[in-house]
Design a binder for these strands. Structure first.
Length: 296
DNA sequence: CTCGATCCCTGGACGC
DNA sequence: TGCGTCCAGGGATCGA
């Protein structure tokens, strides 16, 4: 599932592959994940993808200005969220179209930039000017760009669980379930711990762990669970380095205790019950999701 | 402010 | 081989 390192990998690949390319034409399939398909059809053809950036878990395709002079100074971009199963890759026109190909952009060099997303949990939107800046403002700081102080500021007064805070894109942008669990394991913090109850030195430890893990994951081109591939169609390798995520029942790589899975903030959370002690005063209604009912 | 529940969606895993 | 069921999860939304 594409989180910050995976989206960064895709953004770098697309920057290398398609920056400078003009979008000649656009073909849409299913559009229920697109904010306003008509605007895409009206605005994209003729624009050039000036550069490709990552913004949290979004890909930001920065576009050249509109033909109309009064609008040409506006920043314009195509926002793409890959959701769980989305991919955005350049392909040759002759290449067979994968099932669930929903957007095809013909590029100036003859290739096609294709968006494929079986579950359509992704999102696509053309935004410009104030709409674009307003949208981007909804999000918190990038965990790789924020300072330790800014990170602490974002969580130290919050009563929510630290796992929920890490996943909240308005707190920090780009962290998802995998890297939240990995950084909490690394910092030895229980996912249900409340932000406000974390001592400053533990927050600092989490900040360092998060940055280190994200940077290392970027170097390894992300985690390929499900079907994540980078812009060259290559899987990442960070999934081989997971210490907690997806390791229920397997021994903790520090202390051999069996990794547990509970639900925190509505998400599977993998942790070591020995290294990451249950905080005092936490109601332990956090159980494994709807376990084994359905008797009969 | 924070929570859980629900929905969106498809494919893969699993049981029989 | 095939069918039914469960489950994954980011994000929006709603009610408590």
């Amino acid at each position: 599932m594409p989180e910050l390192p995976e989206v960064e990998t895709v953004a770098r690949g697309l920057q290398r592959e398609i920056a400078g390319q003009r979008i000649v034409s656009l073909t849409l399939g299913k559009t229920d994940f697109i904010d306003n398909p008509e605007i895409l059809e009206a605005e994209l053809p003729g624009r050039t993808v000036e550069r490709v950036e990552r913004y949290g878990k979004f890909l930001l395709l920065r576009l050249s200005g509109a033909p109309e002079p009064e609008k040409s100074r506006e920043e314009a971009a195509l926002l793409v969220h890959l959701g769980m199963t989305g991919s955005l890759m350049p392909k040759g026109v002759q290449d067979e179209r994968a099932k669930h190909t929903h957007v095809v952009m013909l590029l100036g060099d003859g290739r096609e930039l294709r968006y494929v997303d079986p579950r359509r949990f992704g999102r696509m939107a053309y935004l410009a000017g104030k709409r674009l800046s307003d949208e981007l403002q909804r999000f918190g700081l990038d965990p790789l760009q924020m300072s330790a102080g800014e990170f602490r500021q974002a969580i130290h007064l919050r009563k929510a669980r630290i796992k929920a805070l890490l996943l909240d894109q308005s707190v920090v942008r780009g962290v998802g379930n995998i890297y939240a669990d990995e950084s909490l394991w690394s910092a030895k913090i229980h996912p249900a711990e409340l932000g406000a109850r974390l001592k400053p030195e533990r927050v600092a430890k989490l900040y360092k762990a998060l940055q280190k893990i994200l940077q290392r994951a970027i170097l390894l081109k992300g985690s390929s669970i499900a079907d994540f591939l980078d812009a060259d169609g290559m899987p990442g390798e960070y999934q081989l380095h997971h210490r907690a995520y997806g390791r229920e029942g397997k021994p903790c790589m520090r202390c051999k205790t069996s990794i547990r899975r509970i639900i925190v903030a509505g998400r599977s959370s993998y942790f070591c019950p020995n290294c990451q002690r249950t905080p005092r005063g936490i109601r332990r209604r956090a159980r494994v999701k709807r376990g084994r009912r359905r008797i009969r």
